[in-house]
Design a protein around this nucleic acid. Structure first.
Ligand code: MN
Ligand code: MN
Ligand code: ZN
Ligand code: ZN
Lengths: 140, 140
DNA sequence: CGCTTATTGAAAATCATTTTCAATTATAAG
DNA sequence: CTTATAATTGAAAATGATTTTCAATAAGCG
């Protein structure tokens, strides 16, 4: 289970396992759409009502540090988190329901290198994100 | 000149031309790297010292509304603005000096469509941004 | 030039995030 | 199973960015 793996990695990282962290990890590790700190807070309190919003911020910070979550940028805001991509992957996000999904296998570095040369840039990274409608949100 | 065109469009949009707006437009329309509201404020005050930060926010909001600027997302933050791309273009940003540049001519919609199908998404948009080193920032 | 109303900057309010702090608790040692 | 220690907690205060309020100003129009 992802949650257990995350908890292990927190512990390996020298952090203690607490109720607050367990609650946050349970919510975020299992979620298929990006959540803001407050959304994590609301969801996690259903399991652990004593949770403080501060601990959500602090836990997300540590999960980010450990590479277990990543921040998601969208029109609506840039403070939502998802389980981190596995290797080099990019996001597709449903603009209706927010479902997020990673895909891989794009090989664009050649193209990007070429574009870079044309503009005298040496390209070191790229950021690609698709948006659309997931199966469930498409009209019949 | 871009600045004049922006001012015209503000006027066409029903907005009055004021010193505050002129100062903001002068700075943003001529800038080749993304600026935060405070950076715009500092730059524009050199020309118009009475400027208030609030007016920078308000002017950027209107320029965005008119499609004259666009928000730029980066690791460091997502509250910087650039003159809006001309049609369908994407950004290359120098990770050293922040110089920003648009490129076009990528035709990736075929690829994206295919990726979408594989995951039962109908793709409606994409977001692509390259980062690297501009000519001036490359070692020798 | 004068009228009307959008726009202004200052100050206050709001909102998200971070810091401070005393109380609690996870963990390791005994 | 204690006990000791230091990390972690949630509440409250502080901060920082952005928005709202408001009375004064000035753009645009006749
Ligand atoms: Mn890629
Ligand atoms: Mn494109
Ligand atoms: Zn959907
Ligand atoms: Zn550069």
């Amino acid at each position: 289970m992802t949650a257990d793996s995350w908890l292990n990695q927190l512990q390996q990282g020298g952090y203690r396992l607490t109720e607050a962290r367990r609650a946050v990890v349970d919510v975020v590790s299992a979620c298929d759409h990006a959540l803001t700190p407050v959304e994590v807070y609301d969801a996690a309190r259903q399991v652990y009502p004593a949770l403080g919003l501060v601990s959500v911020y602090r836990t997300l910070e540590k999960l980010d540090e450990l590479g277990l979550v990543q921040r998601v940028h969208q029109e609506g805001g840039c403070n939502a988190y998802l389980p981190h991509a596995d290797g080099h992957q990019h996001l597709i996000i449903c603009e209706q329901c927010g479902r997020a999904l990673y895909f891989s296998g794009d090989d664009l570095s050649g193209l990007f290198q070429k574009v870079g040369e044309q503009h005298h840039f040496s390209i070191t990274g790229h950021w690609l994100q698709l948006s659309g409608l997931c199966a469930e949100c498409q009209p019949e």
